[in-house]
Design a protein around this nucleic acid. Structure first.
Lengths: 352, 352
DNA sequence: TTGTACGCGTTATCAA
DNA sequence: TTGATAACGCGTACAA
């Protein structure tokens, strides 16, 4: 039985033959056509169209040592708890930027720590030129991996081992990450509540082993350094966690007249508990969230006043940063650009 | 200046040399080690570990003509409107199955129709072995593309050009897709409302150019063939659309005592309008949704009775189906397995 | 400006 | 069972 291959694709060789040039010239045309006479460029291009030629990426990668692909690493547990819209939107921003630069997005979801072996093999295998990684906890094994194999990486959200901007400690000049200015955003939220005449302002924090949660708490404390510690409860970024924290706070300090929640989901949980306990919002208690999450902040009852961060924009910048690093010549290229901090914006709705 | 390459990775050649065998033998060991004497296998494996050898995927792809990667194609507009959790969860299911089979997931987000040129070039370029595609509208250009270039593809959701199961028309034996049994799920929802004594049951449909919406409407009509046409309003799968549709329905037929919405988001919108108009749920009007969407159905007020579909499972099956097709020998392999329809389940909560 | 020829790292064929 | 060796498709010194 003859080898029944599926419609053998035309090679560069075939293009060259049809155009009556050498393969080298054909290759030059495919890659921009610099230094090739115009009429030859023309000829080759015609041949390419006629044959429907598309370069073989494997062959190209083999010689250039570049894959034109980037890994996006997302820890599974997060995508569930943190709730999806956040990642979806950030990935959207990443995708746009990568597409614009003809780079592919390889999605790596990490289920549990055992998966990191697989991730390491994959990254070490040279399938991708760089990586984008998300929301690392302090003890995440990924940073060690990418450092060991020298994979250019940009983080989404400040990694736990770095010191926050404005915090004392070693500066994080060398690690590339993109994050919203969580601390300043939190300050703005709390200050806003003060200007509205609120006097007993509580905070529902996120899980404090995530820097976003820690930084928002820091912002709260920046404005209210003397605040009663009992006015802070730790949640887990979920609706249920927010409800639990709100209940705790009301039990401890019934006189609360405002709550700043570290994200919109928890704010929603707080709203429910407040309603159940007969408090009106915003009259009795004002509520401010964080994120301006799609389908959550606007449709909450009442609609949430919240701190918006430009999630898509952050994704965009992450990809941009990585491509920049890669562009300058791969692995050992220039040192990664430092962190990028994007600003936040208070969105006033009804809840505060 | 000498070529300052970044820590040249060990090649198979190096492994062979270190183990004192030929490259061919080393290769055999890397790929399972069949037909190699045990003590040589051992030697090679040691060499692999010592050197930290990882196969070069580009070189491998070049000769095997297999990439070990699969494209997941998601239309951008959908991911926004249909709301994220749906895709996130399905992608999670896909990812699990692919990972288990050592296959990579390349994410292709489609912004607008102009992007299909890029998609076609990408698929034709041989970057991936197969594709998974979502929620096609009737006029989507993707099917023509994948057919033209012979890319094995499995669809998520029944494609528009096929006839639904149970519908008359050409059977869709040849096209591979995975879908929930939308029609049967809708029937169950409506029948349930009947058993609860409801007599004027309205339906808020999704955009009818999507088969999921059309099939759910069909299910509604299966049970209520004589229903007043004014009891059906078309929404767009968003909260706002559901609210609009609910308002319309109440204007047209104030006596409605139940609503079956084609998804949970629209059901949420309906709940809001019902509350605004002084109707209690479920006493005055019972409401049933569809999807059992995370963070939506359970946290709705009141919690939604809804039709659950196993979204992750569907993703899992999509990937499984595709891998099966690929496994049997690539492009021209065996004809794609027919559609897979997963069952749904009514989840009773408070709203009906 | 164009062409020749070599190398990228693997797998697969064929002898031994 | 093992080992040479020929592809795989492309980029790029180097020579012309």
């Amino acid at each position: 039985m003859p080898d029944q291959r599926p419609v053998d694709r035309p090679t560069l060789e075939a293009v060259a033959a049809r155009a009556g040039v050498s393969r080298a010239t054909a290759s030059r045309v495919v890659n921009g056509g610099d230094g090739v006479r115009a009429h030859l460029v023309e000829k080759v291009q015609v041949a390419i169209r006629d044959l429907g030629y598309v370069p073989n990426p494997a062959a190209r990668t083999l010689v250039t040592r570049r894959t034109g692909a980037v890994a996006v690493i997302i820890p599974e547990p997060e995508i569930r708890i943190f709730s999806d819209p956040f990642f979806s939107r950030q990935v959207r921003g990443i995708s746009r930027e990568l597409t614009a630069n003809d780079t592919q997005l390889v999605l790596l979801l990490v289920e549990d720590r055992g998966d990191y072996d697989r991730i390491e093999r994959y990254l070490a295998g040279g399938h991708v030129d760089g990586a984008l990684a998300f929301s690392l906890h302090t003890d995440d094994p990924l940073p060690a991996i990418v450092r060991r194999i020298g994979m250019p990486t940009v983080y989404g959200g400040r990694p736990g081992w770095t010191s926050g901007p404005g915090e004392p400690g070693e500066p994080d000049g060398e690690v590339a990450y993109v994050d919203a200015d969580n601390r300043a955003g939190a300050r703005e939220a709390v200050r806003y509540l003060l200007t509205r005449g609120r006097e007993r302002i509580a905070h529902i924090a996120g899980p404090l082993d995530q820097t976003s949660a820690a930084d928002r708490l820091s912002g709260y404390r920046d404005v209210l350094p003397q605040a009663d510690p009992e006015l802070v409860a730790e949640g887990d970024f979920t609706v249920a966690g927010g409800a639990r924290a709100m209940a705790e706070l009301l039990d401890r300090r019934p006189g609360i007249d405002a709550v700043f929640a570290a994200n919109d989901l928890m704010a929603t949980g707080a709203l429910r508990v407040l309603r159940e306990r007969g408090r009106t919002v915003p009259d009795d208690v004002a509520v401010v969230g964080f994120d301006d999450a799609e389908l959550v902040a606007e449709t909450a009852d009442p609609p949430l006043t919240t701190v918006r961060q430009d999630i898509e924009g952050m994704g965009h910048m992450m990809a941009g940063l990585l491509l920049e690093t890669l562009g300058s010549g791969g692995r050992g290229g220039r040192p990664a650009p430092g962190p990028v901090i994007t600003s936040t914006e208070l969105v006033r709705r009804v809840s505060a």
